[in-house]
Design a protein around this nucleic acid. Structure first.
Lengths: 313, 313
DNA sequence: CCGTTGCTATACGCACGAGGTATTACAGCC
DNA sequence: GGCTGTAATACCTCGTGCGTATAGCAACGG
C-alpha cells in the first residue's frame, strides 16, 4: 500500500500535538474542526498507527505520536529551510560552483580571487579542479564547471574569455647560467638558449606566444623540452637544464638553484590571466563570481601588481 | 504569501530532476505529462524561483534546482524514515521510556533488567530517574514515567504493582559489633540493638515491614535513626552506629568497618522488588518492558538468586 | 522546405476530496 | 437534568489535481 502522506498532514498533526486539542488546533490552522479530525484519522489509517489517545478533555499523544511529532517537526523545519535555501540559491547566495584552474594563476591571483568571493558569498562552496585547456572547454560545454582560469585563449564559440590580470614575464634560469648575472634579460639574449616550454597540448598556448615573441626579435627559439605545466618547467630548469619564461606570479615558487630575472619590457612580453565561461550562462552564481572577481581585479592590490608587472624594473 | 508546498511537489520534482524529462518522469509517476508540467510550474511560482531550464530535448536543473533537489531528497528520505519509525514506535520497538528507580534495586536487579531490555530493544532509549515513592506515584499518574521500581507497595488505585524478585534480608553491623561474630543473626538477637531504618517518608515502607517482623518476634525495635535510603543507612552503620537490615543485593556495597550477616530465615524476612505501572497503560513499550523483565526474572540467574535468597545458609 | 519527431505548454472537462455547516455522541460538572 | 466542552459523523460545495486533446517549438532528415 503506497502511502500518500502530505506535508499538510504533518502540519496539522504538529498543531494538534501542540494544542492537545483538535478544536483549538483547527482554530490555529484557520480551518474548522471536522476536517481536521478527518485528516488526522486519515493519517492514522495511512500509517496504520494510532497517534492520539482521545480523552474527554482533548487528545494526548501515544508513544508513536510522540516519535512522529519529533520527526514531523524536523521535516517541516527542513522544508522551511529548503524553501529559504532554494530562494538564496536563485540569488547566487548559496550553492556550489565548480571552477577549473590551470598553471601559475594558482600562485597568486586565483587564491585571492577565491578568498574574496568566499567572504562575500560564504554559503557558496567553490570546488577547484585542475584541468588542462581542452578539459576545461569540454567541462564548460557540458556544464560540469561554471568557470575556468587559463592564460592564452583564442575566441571560442559559445564561450567568453575575459582577462582579469596582465602580468610581466620573467626568465627562470639555473643559478650557474650566464644570464643569472644580468639584472634584466632581453629577448635577443635568449636566441641561443634552449628553452623549456609549456604547456604542451592544445594550441594556442603560451608556447605559441613565446615563438611569436622570438619571431618579433628575429629568431627561432631552441626548444629543449615541452612539458605539461610551469611547475615541471621550473623543476627542469632548477636542475641546471636550460631556461624558461614564466609569469611574474610564478616567481614566488623558489627552488634550489633557480633564479628569476625580469624580461625586458615589450608589448608582447606580458601574459593575461583569463577567466572563461559560457556565453549563455546567466546563472546568478556565475554573475556573483564575475562581479566579485572584477571588483578584486580593479582593487589597489591588483592594479598595483598590474602596473608593476607591465613595467617591471 | 503563505507557501503551500506539499510532499507531492517534492516527489514530482525529484522525479523530473532525475529523469531530466517531464514526459518520462510522468510515466514513472503513473500520471500524464500535463499535470506534472503544471505542478512543477506551480511549485516554481510558489517558491518564486526558477528550478528548471526548458531545453528542446527535455529539462535541466538550474542552480537553485540542484540545491532544492538535494534538499527534497533529504526531506523525502526523512519522511520515509519517519513513517517507518512511527510504525516501529507503535510496536514498542522504538522510542523513549522513562523509568523511576529507588533504593537497593539499583545494585543488582535493575541494571540486569535494563541491560536485557536494551539488548532486545536497542532503539528504545531508557531514561532512569531517581524518585522516592510519592514522586513515583505522582509521575506515573501524570504519565511522566511509564514504570517505577520500588520495594514494598500497598495496592494503589489505578496502578499495578508486580513483584519481580524476592530477596533475603541481611543484617549490616559495624565490624566491632558483637553480632559480627555470629554466622547467622536471628530476629530476637536484634531486640536490644538500635536500628537505622529507611526510607523515611511515605508509608508503608520497609520500616513497617521491620516493625512487623520485630512484632512477630515479640519485641518492639529500637529505632536509632530514620534515613532516606539504604545507602545512607549503611553509611551510618559503617561509622559504628547501631545496625540495619538490607536486601541481599545491597550487600555488594562494601564500606570500611561494615559487615553483613544473613538474617535467619523466616517467612517475613524477605523483601520483594516490584515494578509499578498504570493499570490502564497499554502502550507497547510498557508491554515490551514487562515481557522482557518477566523473562529475565524467570531466567536461571534470577531464579537461582531467588532460591538462595529464600533460604540462605 | 516541409513533414516527422520529441519535447513542453495550454485548453478544457471531470471527479475526487479537502473544507464548510449542522448535528450527534459522549463525558464531566454544577 | 441541563450545561459545557470535547471529538465524531453526515452531508454538501467548491477548488484543484488529473485526464484527454491539442497547440507551440526546435532539431533533424528527406
Amino acid at each position: 500500500m503506497r502511502i500518500n502522506l502530505e506535508l499538510r498532514h504533518l502540519r496539522y498533526f504538529v498543531c494538534v500535538a501542540e494544542e492537545r486539542n483538535i478544536g483549538r488546533a483547527a482554530l490555529r490552522l484557520h480551518i474548522s474542526q471536522p476536517p481536521l479530525t478527518r485528516q488526522i484519522q486519515q493519517m492514522e489509517d495511512q500509517l496504520g498507527v494510532q497517534l492520539l489517545r482521545r480523552t474527554n478533555r482533548g487528545v494526548e499523544l501515544t508513544d508513536a505520536g510522540k516519535v512522529l511529532y519529533n520527526d514531523a517537526c524536523d521535516i517541516l523545519g527542513m522544508t522551511e529551510r529548503a524553501i529559504e535555501r532554494s530562494s538564496k540559491a536563485a540569488q547566487g547566495l548559496l550553492g556550489r560552483v565548480d571552477v577549473a584552474i590551470f598553471g601559475s594563476g594558482i600562485f597568486w591571483a586565483i587564491p585571492r580571487l577565491m578568498r574574496a568571493f568566499r567572504e562575500s558569498y560564504p554559503e557558496v562552496s567553490v570546488f577547484l579542479h585542475n584541468m588542462i585547456k581542452e578539459e576545461q572547454i569540454d567541462a564548460l560545454r557540458q556544464r560540469r564547471i561554471t568557470l575556468a582560469f587559463n592564460r592564452l585563449m583564442r575566441p571560442i564559440e559559445g564561450l567568453i574569455s575575459e582577462p582579469l590580470l596582465t602580468e610581466a614575464l620573467y626568465v627562470a634560469v639555473p643559478s650557474n647560467s650566464h644570464l643569472a648575472q644580468h639584472s634584466v634579460v632581453t629577448m635577443s639574449e635568449l636566441k641561443d638558449v634552449p628553452l623549456v616550454l609549456y604547456p604542451s597540448g592544445a594550441r594556442p598556448s603560451f608556447i605559441d606566444q613565446v615563438r611569436d615573441m622570438c619571431r618579433a626579435s628575429s629568431f627561432t627559439p631552441l626548444v629543449a623540452q615541452e612539458v605539461g605545466d610551469v611547475v615541471h618547467a621550473l623543476a627542469l630548469v632548477a636542475t641546471g637544464f636550460s631556461a624558461t619564461l614564466v609569469p611574474r606570479s610564478a616567481t614566488v615558487l623558489a627552488l634550489p638553484g633557480l633564479i628569476y630575472k625580469p624580461l625586458h619590457h615589450l608589448p608582447q612580453s606580458r601574459v593575461d590571466l583569463c577567466c572563461i565561461y559560457r556565453a549563455d550562462d546567466d546563472s546568478p552564481i556565475l554573475q556573483a563570481l564575475l562581479t566579485s572577481m572584477r571588483t578584486v581585479a580593479k582593487s589597489p592590490d591588483f592594479t598595483e601588481l598590474n602596473r608593476m608587472n607591465q613595467a617591471p624594473d
